[in-house]
Design a protein around this nucleic acid. Structure first.
Length: 643
DNA sequence: GGCATCCCCGCCCTCTGCTGGTCTGAT
DNA sequence: AATCAGACCAGCAGAGGGCGGGGATGCC
């Protein structure tokens, strides 16, 4: 009998790729989402369910069926087997009248001993049966120690049996269907006879799962009927089978006599001269997917598709690239890979530009950049993208999701590229820098260099005028460079004498020399001053009893100078020709030069000018303490500069 | 029925470039 | 102190590369 010859699947079926597809927890997650719901019976049922019957099919399992130990686990995979009910009886297997699940506990002990592995389960095709039933069974430890048998899936048990009356009602057009017929019925397909040999395929999914912490396993039977169940279709089908029109099954239409025989599909433009091809084609208009993946319950129309799919579970990749280590499940993937990586063949060429792609879908996507088509509309804003990924990425802007986390500082980012740049710039070594080819400015990011080039080196159609002279430039950088030439220029010139200065305010103050104006009056005496700083110094020196004038000491010879940046510097050039501005720390002296060094932009000339402003004319003396810190400090000078 | 091939969709990635807010130094 | 400009930085979108995987069909 057919069932006795346990099919020996190809090696593709036998390998286990990863734990993920097998974890019981994962399977549990399928509850209510399209997976088969699992119910667990109590263990009393196990103890009472002792059976003598054994199934020849499973007797041979450890030897004949492709079981493979990987990661110390035994994986058992069965392909679809075709059983006739009489075969089962011949093998002495009783029918398991599995009732509704709520009656399960009472009913299981009554089941006629067939629950001990190895065994085959069957149940009456009662239409009112719920689709799933679950019993708990014992499993002989010598066959499958529980620790090895983490999860056992039995594939599909399938039987052709005469359809019940009510089933006929449920499948009114079954008699016209050719899609559900067996190949041997092919002859009848062209001229189907209503009511003859009407069969319905029943699909029972049997799954075994070890009960946690026990020596028992849980056996789940799912009835996957292909009959029309409009009210409550099996969830597994809901998820795995795309909604296709369940309209009247297409019929072949023969051409008229004399023409070559072709078969034309009623549902689509497909034609074929071969009946077998036509028959295969019309299955695409049905929901028939008899080949079920035992690992994820996904259903397929053909064994080949199932095998490819199983290879994705097992990691079997028969098609290996000769030029690299890559391997693929299908030959098509290998061809495509070789085009991408090795041959660089790009058969799909854009008619509007030079773009060419390996895949047609890429060309299609590319063409949208020409047409502007944006088929993927955001539901929350006006944005629409040209492909699904961009829309998905865009949706993060609404959800606030930041899936990418910097492993160093745990900052989060919406895009991987942003995080990559962050990591490179913030935490990376040998951070790449980008040098402006025009001005040698170093900029961290290439995109910012582009901004720099645009802003500073871009050509302006209108001439940009210099602030200080009539010169004009078309490049901003050139203008800035030019304006810097004005920096040390004494561009404010007195019209009445040779005086010139860099700041307008200085010229204003100078002009009072010519006008005689002295707007700053001392409140304590009748003195008047042309500049505010002069009044301030006067007040401090003449009217502040706590004021102690400073004396600046030369660190070399300790000679004292009341005028700091002028006389002292002049002296030091003689005393210490080294052009080094020593700091207080390095010399153990005062810190004013340190401050000055920190303000490199302030020239000694400017300081001297301010000092002279503050101290009055060069003849004024500043007699005071030995401490330079108590004299006219840099801070005071800078304050004056700021005024 | 099996295999090879092509087609198609989907997902994820990288590279690129623009934008706007922030920081910082110069004025 | 205020202002301005440039660099820095993250956010975001455009474009394209590469691969995973299912579906359909031609051919043997």
């Amino acid at each position: 009998m057919a069932a006795a010859e346990a099919p020996v699947p190809s090696g593709h079926f036998t390998q286990i790729k990863e734990q993920k597809s097998l974890k019981p927890g994962d399977l549990e997650e399928e509850k209510g989402e399209g997976g088969v719901q699992r119910v667990e019976a109590q263990e009393e049922a196990v103890e009472e369910a002792e059976a003598e019957d054994s199934c020849l099919q499973l007797d041979a399992l450890p030897q004949e069926l492709p079981s493979r130990v990987e990661s110390d686990r035994r994986i058992l995979t069965l392909q679809t087997v075709h059983l006739a009910s009489q075969d089962l009886h011949l093998q002495g297997l009783g029918w398991l009248g599995v009732p509704h699940s709520e009656e399960l506990l009472e009913s299981v002990p009554q089941a006629e001993g067939l629950l001990q592995l190895p065994s085959v389960l069957w149940f009456d095709p009662e239409p009112q049966l719920s689709l799933q039933h679950c019993v708990t069974v014992s499993i002989p430890e010598e066959l499958y120690p529980p620790e090895e048998l983490e999860l056992m899936h039995f594939h599909l048990l399938r039987e052709n049996e005469p359809a019940a009356e009510e089933d006929q009602e449920l499948t009114p057009d079954l008699d016209e269907s050719t899609a559900l017929k067996k190949p041997e019925d092919e002859k009848d397909q062209l001229l189907p006879q209503a009511g003859t040999d009407k069969k319905e395929e029943r699909f029972l999914f049997v799954e075994m799962k070890p009960k946690e912490g026990k020596d028992d396993i849980v056996l789940t039977i799912s009835r996957l009927s292909l009959e029309e169940e409009p009210q409550d279709p099996p969830e597994a089908e809901q998820t795995s089978v795309p909604p296709r029109a369940k309209a009247a099954k297409p019929k072949p239409r023969r051409q008229s006599k004399g023409e070559p025989q072709t078969f034309k599909c009623d549902s689509c433009p497909f034609t074929s001269s071969k009946l077998s091809t036509f028959n295969r084609h019309i299955k695409i208009h049905s929901d028939e997917r008899p080949h079920l993946c035992h690992l994820c319950l996904k259903a397929f129309r053909t064994v080949t598709l199932l095998r490819n799919h199983l290879n994705t579970h097992t990691g079997t990749r028969p098609y290996k690239c000769e030029d690299c280590d890559m391997a693929f499940v299908t030959s098509g993937e290998l061809v495509r890979h070789r085009r991408y990586k090795h041959t660089h063949e790009r058969p799909f060429k854009c008619t509007q530009c030079k773009y060419a792609s390996v895949e047609a879908s890429k060309l299609k996507r590319h063409i949208r950049s020409h047409t502007g088509e944006r088929p993927f509309q955001c539901r929350q804003c006006d944005y629409a993208s040209r492909d699904t990924y961009k829309l998905k990425r865009h949706m993060r802007t609404h959800s606030g999701e930041k899936p990418y986390e910097c492993p160093t500082c745990h900052s989060r980012f919406t895009q991987s590229g942003t995080m990559k740049i962050h990591m490179s710039q913030k935490h990376g070594e040998n951070v790449p820098k980008h040098e402006c080819p025009h001005c040698a400015t170093i900029i961290a990011r290439k995109s910012d260099l582009r901004v720099h080039l645009r802003n500073l080196h871009g050509h302006s159609p209108e001439e940009i005028k210099c602030r200080y002279c009539p010169a004009g430039f078309h490049e901003r950088y050139a203008l800035i460079q030019h304006q810097r030439t004005h920096k040390n220029e004494k561009k404010f010139k007195c019209k009445q004498c040779n005086y010139a200065c860099k700041q307008e305010r200085c010229l204003t103050a100078h002009m009072r020399i010519h006008t005689g104006e002295k707007p700053f009056s001392c409140p304590a005496c009748d003195k008047h001053f042309r500049q505010k700083q002069l009044l301030t110094v006067h007040l401090r020196k003449q009217h502040d009893p706590s004021f102690v004038s400073s004396v600046h000491l030369c660190p070399k010879c300790d000679k004292g100078f009341s005028r700091w940046m002028s006389n002292l510097q002049r002296h030091r050039k003689k005393c210490d020709p080294e052009p080094v501005m020593r700091t207080q720390a390095s010399e153990g002296g005062a810190g004013h030069e340190d401050d000055v060094a920190a303000r490199e932009s302030v020239t000694s000339g400017e300081l001297r000018g301010l000092e002279e402003q503050a101290l009055g004319h060069p003849g004024d003396s500043a007699v005071g303490s030995q401490s330079p810190d108590q004299g006219l400090t840099c801070e005071m000078i800078f304050n004056m500069m700021d005024k």
